[in-house]
Nucleic acid binder design. Sequence first.
RNA 1: GGGCGGUUAGCUCAGUGGUUAGAGCGCAUGCUUCACACGCAUGAGGUCACAGGUUCAAAUCCUGUACCGCCCACCA
Length: 896
Amino acid sequence: MATRTLRTTYDPRAVEMPRYTEWMRAGYFRALVDPSRTRGSSRGPFVIMLPLPNVTGESHIGTASTFSIQDVLIRWRRMQGRNALWQPGTDHAGIATQNVVEREIAREGLTLEALGRERFVQRVWQWKETYGNIIVEQLKRMGFSCDWDRYIFTLDPPYYDAVLEAFVRLFNQGLIYRGKRMVNWCPRDQSAISDLEVEHVEVDTQLWHVRYPGAGGGPGITIATQRPETILADVAVAVHPADPRYAALIGTEVVVPIVNRRVPVIADTRVDREFGTGALKITPGHDPMDNEIGTDHKLPTLVILDPRGRMTADTGKYAGQDRFEARKAVGADLQALGLLERVEPYRTNVGTCDRCHAVIEPYISDQWFADMTSMAARAAEAIRSGRVRFHHERWAKIVLQFLDHIRPWTISRQLWWGHRIPVWQCDVCGERTAAKTPLERCPKCGGGPVKQDPDVLDTWFSSGIWPFATLGWPMETPDLRYFYPGDVLVTANEILFLWVARMIMMGLHFMGDVPFTDVYVAPTVMTLEGRRMSRSLGTGIDPLEMVDGRGYGADAVRFALISRCSQAQQDLRFNEKMIADVRNFNTKIWNATRFVLMNLEGFDHRRAPAAGDLGPADRWIRSRHAQLSRAVTAHLEAFEFDKAARALYEFIWAEYCDWYLEMAKVDLQDAPSGSARRAAIQHTLWSVLSDTMALLHPIMPFLTEEIWQQLPHHGDSLMIAPWPAPDPDAVDADHDRMMDTLMSVVRALRSLRSELGLPPSQRISVHVRADEASGRLLAPVGRHLAALARTDPVSIEPLSLPRPRESVTAVLSGVEVSIPLGGLVDPAKERDRLARALRDLDAELLSLQRRLDNPDFVQRAPADVVEREQGRAEDLRARRQRLHEIAAALGDGPAR
RNA sequence: GGGCGGUUAGCUCAGUGGUUAGAGCGCAUGCUUCACACGCAUGAGGUCACAGGUUCAAAUCCUGUACCGCCCACCA
């Protein structure tokens, strides 16, 4: 073939997108039911459900990292021959999307009310058509090999139908019920949210100490509160029954300031005597614990805040004030009344809405709840029995903790964008009926007109059925039978409860089986300072900006993230430099390929080299490659992506490029064109590089495909090439040892050269003297030794021969290398060098000898360990002896 | 308040009982060595957070302490 010339740098921008288009066109991402590839077989299905990004989503380093891991798994399994399905889609993301569009219409001076439900929902659809594909395009740009033909949006009609089906079934099973409860209310979003959507944040606030005078004119009781505005809704003051300070007051009445309401002093063990004054004001309308206490003591519930968090009309002068405004106003009035004893600074947690960050209001309202108790128990059992495994396994404990303490799930949202709750209530008899198709009349009383519930479902309710609803459920489709249950779920730890736990619960409930067997929890990507990456904080790295803006390419971003995804860490500190480093790695691979291509004239891959035609370097790199291939596969199987990436990096750079290619240069010089020997070298250059590209492909699909296509004899895409099977026969301990010896000799020579200030351009003559074993190892690579150390041709002589005079010598195990310098040897420097070498050797020998002199060690340590240490000691003593000889020959031997 | 993780070279991290603890980056020195200066070579740099303990042997196992981070939690 003709020599190809390639540029010395690789431009990912020029190749990545066109290549992706080609893959798409070829249909490589597609997964189809194939009964001949049976479940559980080596060619059977392998399924990953993409953690569906929000339609409002944009490229984010966190998604880039979890999705890169998924693509590694999918591409690797696909190459292994599995029928790999990566199911993509996007989430309608109820509150998030509604907020975005609400802001949009607000800019036009419109409000929700003015627009009306139907027109608003239409607007959101319009918005979705315009912007909803951004995230999909970004995923494609990263090279992710999802089966886009199967792309699903959670409000697509079939998926919508599945969501309603799930609701109706749970409703009819009595697992969904309606109730008037205290829920987490977001005054900004005007909706209930679930416990999991509340983010607790630490804030500095104040603790107000307020006196409630006794109804009979006594001093009364002083309480401590963070929320003086809720005093208006107080219905009691509670103290601990065993608190001597207040024992006499229990059963008496005190007067709530401002509203002058007489309320009882009650006793309840839930009061903490240590906190504040030990007396607790009871506000059942605005505090969860007070609500419980109020219920138990049959106290009335007063409400003084409206759904927007403003004081209600019946609060007199405070009516209409925001809760925080009212807090100050009430505080001032208490002060004026002389009932505010003191205000102290106080640090505490407040609940905020995870979408809009408004402070959550505990609020009593009518909502739909799902009772998850039995589902959680089954999910917990599945995890405990190992049917679902977590990586790292510590996450299992955390999920179990959640499942073991499961609480009712508030599933209704007072929004317009989402799956509308399929419940119709009869105007006449009040009966509520769940049905997938709209009802006209009440089925209970037969005639009453019905109205549909106005609320929509929690977004996470619909994503909980993602693993099977995407495959056609509730219909028994071939897809569902073939692809469910799936295999791996890769996600960030922040949605373990919101999503992962719920998929396990729903999968077991509706499908009778877990949705996946392995959950890999990816680390959270942080800045170098340990701050969360976030666009709003300006601390983020935008992967797309790295890929195209900075020109590093998708491969570099993927490798940089994956090589640092260790299971042990829950954080991943990351910066742009790490991506730039991978770009350098890519250039290195690219140039190694150029070198290989330049040396493939006349190469025919069908001419498999005979064993005798392979040189020592060829055998060594084939041996190392076989070991690499085994290691990479094992690491991927163990979800150790960082180790797989590092093994590849190490092999390519430090073994293939730094040593093998340099040695191959020597071999190519020696092997005549057209010879079998030359063909063997070419075959090694080509096959090791090709197979390494295959191993690297799941992590860096674009560069590896590009090189695969440049290398001769690869017709089809690397995407569908077989995963390299390690060749056990290639593993060659003798040649591994040979190279170890060669490397240490070469390094010793380079080190001497550097220390003596001999520039690389200066050829030097060296004497290598070796004992029998080392001599045998070095003899076949003498030419390489000379080339790598840039010396005149060397002959390997027996160690028993005398050292050359007037030379400097490095002493290795079984080998000595000497550089004759004639009169240029500086005895002082040389003595110094030898003294340092001796000092290191002695230190090592000393600690070793101490161990060997310890009878406990010799008796108790395993025999092989003792034997090895004895061997080492012997070697060290021999080397020390030689160093002493050299020093003695110099005269004025170094002080011991 | 409960739970979990981390602490190893200037930085980011490997290293889970057995050589004198490693890598990449950064730093220093030298190099237009015919694939690559986004490179090559050589080198400096660590009392493995601290204190106890177990063991013939501890960065590694156990206990405690400190600091950093995360999750859960109705002490107002």
